[in-house]
Design a protein around this nucleic acid. Structure first.
Lengths: 242, 242
DNA sequence: TAGTGGTCTAGACCACGTG
DNA sequence: ACGTGGTCTAGACCACTAT
């Protein structure tokens, strides 16, 4: 027997799509409570269990945050739980130590063809280039060079970054309504160049981890590209495999 | 109102525990079909939905493999799907290229205190040290040094490794009934030493990725420690963040 | 006490793979 | 045609949080 409907899509996936749309359009803002499962079930005319399965997937992707007895909240980078959610570097001895960022510069330039291609914009488009250093216990360990498509971050300045005292992603979310949902990283080992050498206070030629990250928001739209040089003599990049 | 039972554990978690026990004890072997959800529900005296939720979690952890219309299979490293499941290195240009391993040596030695600590064995315990090189399109890109607690891999020899033509984890699973379920990696950038230099055919001092992996089987028991030196000029270690 | 997410059930039906 | 996993429903009850 052939399937009746060859383009079959489960109901809960369709509900998930509707929820994603509401999230993307800002019907519920970061940190806010979304309607209860029962309420959403009534709204979409499906059973509570179906809504539940849709929300299950959103929770697994860290788009929302369930709290038993309280409700389901829109995830935000401005909360303890997802602070440094994407940062995989940790000290070999005291893995708990958190970094502090210092912003060095913000420039507005045209995207190179390489950067443009990765960010899925035109080579002539403007991008902000942010440079910063992250220190752990006062010791510089990461130098980041961050490209942000200017069209999405109008009015970004070094001063505003320097005044912000939490994470960059929290800042971008609060100030420009751009939320990083997932990212891909490509990691290589390279030698420290003079620029890195000065900032990370190591000799030219010291091996560094080069972490290239492309971050995406809703609909897999790329909204940030960064290259980070990590000093890994006493720290390492952590990963789990399943 | 206080909870009635402070040590509450959902039924499906208990069922998951029972399934894990059967998997660990080999009631169902790698690659084999496990009983249907209906059958398991009858066996444990719960509803099919409860069994389903237990299996959902096992599937999410890659311990079993569901196939609609066919059944649920015990995951194995000896199948296309999980070949190189833990290998994150891929070519920047042609990410699909698969490596070929060459085994260089197998030694039986006493674990150093450092290795013993990580493998959770006594420093006096014997371990096998395996050295190998992995080539992509004939080019050596990874040099691995692998520690295996001798007690779990009795009779391991270089010859047997050289005769095996699939992945190491497939070999360890088939020959010693040890299945790698998950692993943790710590990644650093280092300079090539003379030993790496000779094997990877690069100059001493070339930056290499040092990937230290600790692999676990059931009950989070560590059963493999390895250090891999990756040449990342045209390849990179891939990771996804959520 | 009320409301939320979390668990569990029983049953119906669908999509998929195999014989 | 049959058996499997996958979806969907409706309803009951539990655990947790806030008021």
């Amino acid at each position: 027997m052939q399937p009746v409907n060859p383009t079959f899509s489960p109901l809960y996936q369709q509900i998930k799509g509707l929820l994603l749309k509401s999230l993307q359009e800002g019907e519920w803002k970061p940190g806010e409570l979304i309607p209860s499962e029962t309420e959403l079930a009534a709204r979409y005319g499906v059973s509570q269990g179906t809504v539940r399965k849709a929300i299950d997937e959103l929770a697994a992707e860290n788009l929302v945050d369930r709290k038993q007895g309280r409700g389901t909240f829109v995830a935000t980078h401005n909360e303890a739980k997802s602070e440094y959610r994407f940062l995989r570097l940790a000290a070999d001895e005291e893995p708990g130590v958190k970094p502090k960022s210092t912003y060095l510069s913000v420039e507005r330039v045209r995207a190179s063809s390489q950067i443009a291609k990765l960010l899925d914009i035109k080579p002539s488009d403007a991008v902000f280039v942010v440079k910063r250093v992250m220190r752990f216990d006062g010791v510089p360990r990461i130098f980041d060079e961050i490209w942000l498509p200017a069209s999405q971050y109008k009015g970004l300045t070094l001063e505003r970054l320097q005044q912000w005292d939490s994470t960059l992603y929290g800042f971008l979310e609060s100030s420009f309504n751009v939320r990083m949902l997932r990212a891909k990283e490509h990691i290589k080992a390279v030698s420290a160049q003079p620029e890195h050498s000065a900032i990370l206070q190591v000799e030219v030629g010291t091996p560094l981890l080069l972490v290239e990250r492309l971050s995406m928001t809703y609909a897999d739209q790329p909204v940030e590209l960064r290259r980070g040089w990590y000093l890994t003599d006493k720290f390492s990049y952590r990963n789990e495999l399943y």
